[in-house]
């Protein structure tokens, strides 16, 4: 088993699925030309390996997604790259009114087996380029939404997403592309719709996904030194949302913090907290707490950006407060 980056794991998934199925293609802005393949290097080298199947497109996200939907209807399995999630707003109508409507509204006559790959993230790029819409995507019936945190999950989920018969929004993360993790050499899939324990512990449950899984793991190290053992449930799939592990964990620890990167109001954390208390109110020894991004358009200045985003220290503080009954 080799340790590779999240970026390389994604590239391997794309390569393997393109080798396996000739109808898989990659379309997006600068997936061929720019710096050898993709604004963030995920598709590097694939255009040479698969002539005619990796194509640069105009900067027209509504068409990248819309043409992808049509091609999927017509028998292909396009993987469409939206350079960052912020630009997915330009394609919002195509995602919500078309990709997510076809199968149900047309009563099963049309399927849309496509993947929309796009990264969340930040990096001193200010308000229009540092957003997180996980909750919006996850609120749309008929979409599948995944957000892997590790190279292992990134590869296994992307392969599942490409083989899936429904439209899958695949949320990557700029800050995770260069992180490393073990990925088996042999083929494997990670099923869509299944959460995963990333750490076991008896005192407190953290429900999270994406970059915040990694921050929560860092927080767990600190908390362990203080005698607080957290259990981390990485949702991995945001729609349909798998509550089974979170419920199992709550019944053990009786304390929950939901950790998300995006805005708190109307965030996915609010939905998860509401659902957990509906089902497992009697299991809870403390109100469910939330760690989330602060609700401002992301500032450019380094200190302001850092203050806006949640990091491990925010998780540590929330966990301490909960264990000391300060909520």
């Amino acid at each position: 088993m080799a340790e590779i980056t999240y970026r390389e794991a994604l590239r391997r998934a794309l390569r393997e699925e393109m080798q396996r199925d000739p109808t898989v293609v990659i379309w997006g802005e600068d997936v061929v030309a720019y710096a050898g393949g993709g604004a963030y290097g995920v598709t590097a080298g694939l255009a040479k390996e698969f002539p005619g199947r990796v194509r640069d497109t105009p900067i027209a996200e509504e068409a990248i997604v819309g043409v992808g939907i049509g091609a999927a209807m017509g028998g292909m399995r396009p993987v469409c790259e939206i350079m960052t999630v912020n630009f997915a707003l330009v394609a919002w109508d195509q995602i919500v009114n078309h990709a997510a409507k076809q199968s149900h509204m047309f009563n099963g006559q049309i399927k849309v087996p496509m993947v929309i790959r796009t990264p969340n993230g930040h990096g001193r790029t200010a308000a229009t380029h540092s957003q997180n819409f996980d909750a919006w995507f996850a609120s749309i019936p008929s979409l599948k939404v995944v957000a892997p945190a590790t190279p292992y999950d990134a590869k296994g989920l992307l392969k599942s997403a490409i083989r899936d018969d429904d439209p899958v929004v695949f949320l990557e993360h700029l800050q995770l592309y260069s992180t490393r993790g073990e990925v088996p050499d042999e083929e494997y899939l990670v099923p869509i719709g299944e959460a995963d324990y990333k750490r076991r512990g008896a005192h407190l449950t953290i429900v999270t996904w994406g970059r915040m899984t990694i921050e929560s793991l860092k927080a767990a190290q600190v908390l362990a030194q203080e005698g607080i053992e957290v259990e981390i449930v990485d949702l991995r799939t945001l729609r349909p949302l798998d509550y089974a592990l979170a419920l199992e964990s709550v019944r053990k620890t009786h304390r929950v913090i939901v950790v998300e990167e995006g805005w708190r109001t109307g965030g996915l954390g609010a939905e998860i907290a509401a659902t957990l208390q509906e089902i497992a109110f009697n299991e809870l020894d403390a109100p469910i707490a939330r760690v989330a991004g602060l609700e401002v358009p992301m500032p450019y200045a380094k200190n302001l950006e850092r203050a806006t985003l949640p990091f491990a220290e925010d998780v540590v503080a929330a966990a301490r407060a909960m264990m000391h009954n300060e909520y």
Binding site: T23, V25, E62, A63, V65, G66, V67, G68, I69, G70, A71, A72, M73, G74, G75, M76, P78, Q94, H98
Partner: peptide, 13 residues
Amino acid sequence: PLAVGLAVAAQYL
């Protein structure tokens, strides 16, 4: 765009 996608699929396939 969906129609263009159908046409592109016909071309590709």
